[in-house]
Design a protein around this nucleic acid. Structure first.
Lengths: 112, 112
DNA sequence: TCCTTTTATCGTATATTTGCGATATATAAT
DNA sequence: ATTATATATCGCAAATATACGATAAAAGGA
């Protein structure tokens, strides 16, 4: 992008866009879905469900972790992951609220 | 990405990720917000509110249009844009529902 | 101790996105 | 007819993301 202009935007919009962005890849949606589906934290088995190499899945997990949507702990040889319930719920809530507000503001009858 | 693996994922996840992706840039969130805020469709004035060149804003508008979140019509010299209320509401609803379902599934007490 | 297993990280190739200026195009105004 | 204005598109450069294989690191088991 030649120059990174992202920081020139409103912090709220940056936050919302970062949440959206991390969910902007089907692998990461699939990971979240898979994490939610199991009773226990998942250690490893995620790779088997995705059509991607182990290193790639690991990268996606790191991004989800960096965004705070997922948390992980090391348990022996394995790394275990689960959804960071509190964060996820909170950020999803903010996102919904923002989008809802936008649609409330947008009270045009007819348009274009 | 060497090879595009996106198509290997579940269509639902692709749909959700595409919605998220288009909102994954602060400029596009800001555009949506700006469009909602005005009584009438916006013709032009969006560029003035964003810290980006005209051509860049136009590109972001095209992406929002391609994703169906925004609609536009040409009115004389100007192009006018507004939120595609029906589509936006629908896709946002699907997104919320999916995320909500995921969080309902994720009924772990304690984790990692 | 040595080997195996598991996951993270590094290096690299390629794809995509972001951004701009220049230009094209179309209408409006003079 | 000429000029001005508004917006889209093109061409390009730079940044970021995606993906993989190879390798490292760390723990467990033989």
């Amino acid at each position: 992008m030649a120059l990174n202009k992202k920081s020139l935007f409103h912090p709220d919009d940056i936050l919302l866009s970062e949440f959206a962005k991390v969910l902007g890849h089907p692998a990461r949606i699939a990971i979240i879905r898979e994490l939610a589906k199991h009773e226990e934290c998942i250690c490893g088995q995620i790779v088997e469900v995705l059509p991607l190499a182990q290193s790639t899945v690991s990268q996606h997990l790191q991004e989800l972790k960096k965004a705070g949507l997922v948390q992980g702990t090391i348990s022996g040889v394995k790394s275990c992951y689960c959804i960071h319930k509190e964060n996820f719920t909170k950020v999803l809530g903010l996102f919904n609220e923002a989008m809802h507000d936008i649609m409330l503001t947008n009270n045009k009858e007819k348009c274009c």
